[in-house]
Design a protein around this nucleic acid. Sequence first.
DNA 1: CATGCCCGCATGTGATCACAAACGGGGCCG
DNA 2: CGGCCCCGTTTGTGATCACATGCGGGCATG
Lengths: 214, 214
Amino acid sequence: MSPSRSSETSAHERLYRNLRQRIMLGELPPGQALTLRGIAAEHRVSMTPAREAVRRLVAEGALSLSSSGRIATPELSVERIEELAALRGLIEPELASRALPRAHQALIERMAVINAAIGEAAESHDAIGYIRTNLEFHRLLYLRAQAPAMLAIVETVWLQLGPTMRALYGRVKRNEPPRHHRMILASLRAGDEPGLRLAVRADVTHGLRHLGTT
Amino acid sequence: MSPSRSSETSAHERLYRNLRQRIMLGELPPGQALTLRGIAAEHRVSMTPAREAVRRLVAEGALSLSSSGRIATPELSVERIEELAALRGLIEPELASRALPRAHQALIERMAVINAAIGEAAESHDAIGYIRTNLEFHRLLYLRAQAPAMLAIVETVWLQLGPTMRALYGRVKRNEPPRHHRMILASLRAGDEPGLRLAVRADVTHGLRHLGTT
DNA sequence: CATGCCCGCATGTGATCACAAACGGGGCCG
DNA sequence: CGGCCCCGTTTGTGATCACATGCGGGCATG
């Protein structure tokens, strides 16, 4: 076809990034149905790149296939959510700990700025903005850990939790940033490694705890 | 086309499973080049299912694409290997701990049998058999943890390490099962949770430690 | 004999077609 | 009025084709 848009990356890569971002930020509710032809048409490409992007996202747990092959965002069971939260609680403190020696003042200030943005998103009840800035807060720290494989796995977990997080934060009306973020920043400033691990673990575990109200 | 082989699963699923197993067991050395047409021809299907299987494996880190899209098994840097080993050391003790309360006598005996098979594979210098039985030993335990998401992530890590493990075990001539396996079995029998965590962590960390000889 | 260029072929990407299955709505029967 | 069946249509799967790209071997050149 005419390469009207001469983007650097291949078509399926663009579809993949677009879908991945929408899922991770919770723009799609759990159980949302998708079709290959719909995705393809939306991006003005044929079914082939759509198939590859979907296949990739299914492999990462960001989408699920019904027994007959229909595509939808996953509807997570409570057990699975708790398991994914446990994985976050296992890996993220490790990433934070590895990032701590490299976390300079400038980084901490940038994190504080993002934390303020989280507060703004919370005040205006912007669920997607809240999720996005919250993930940015964590990712900015973890990038300093110089551990790409660990970060990739954590992002996969975030991806799987995306639709559920949206449903969760859409219900719980927050007005302020997570309380543990201040503890994370304080521990970073103090160079307090055990405190940082605890703060990160608490932050990660806390948000996913009130699920009994489902 | 004529559905000559009426297998239950779709074609790309069969290709995926076949390739995944070969990679995880270390049948392919690091840097081994593959082609879509080659994979397709080997399984008597068209390129389409081969593409989807490869895409899925790339998403899991089992295969890597060059900048021009060529397919090969990944050649891991030492840093990445250490990171993946750290992930194993983080998650596998947790899985073992969760499996412990459900680990009955019958399970422990089956693990002991597999451990003997590991010894046989080691004696006959059967690298692939060694890797396969070793993973079976761990998987059999972790299945009891009732934590499918964690198990899936650990298996992804195993998958990424597959070609490297082959290169590793092919060089180091082992003659016996990993020494920490006896500690794992003993901790299981004694119901000793902290000991189990330590034994698993040691087992996982130990095997990947002697990399300086590269 | 070493080195760099060049062309042919292998390879991945995307589009399109054919087909089987299953979803779902409308109508029929109890 | 409710439940069930049936058929049209949507949807995923696999095959095949056209094309751009880049790798690699062979030849010419210094």
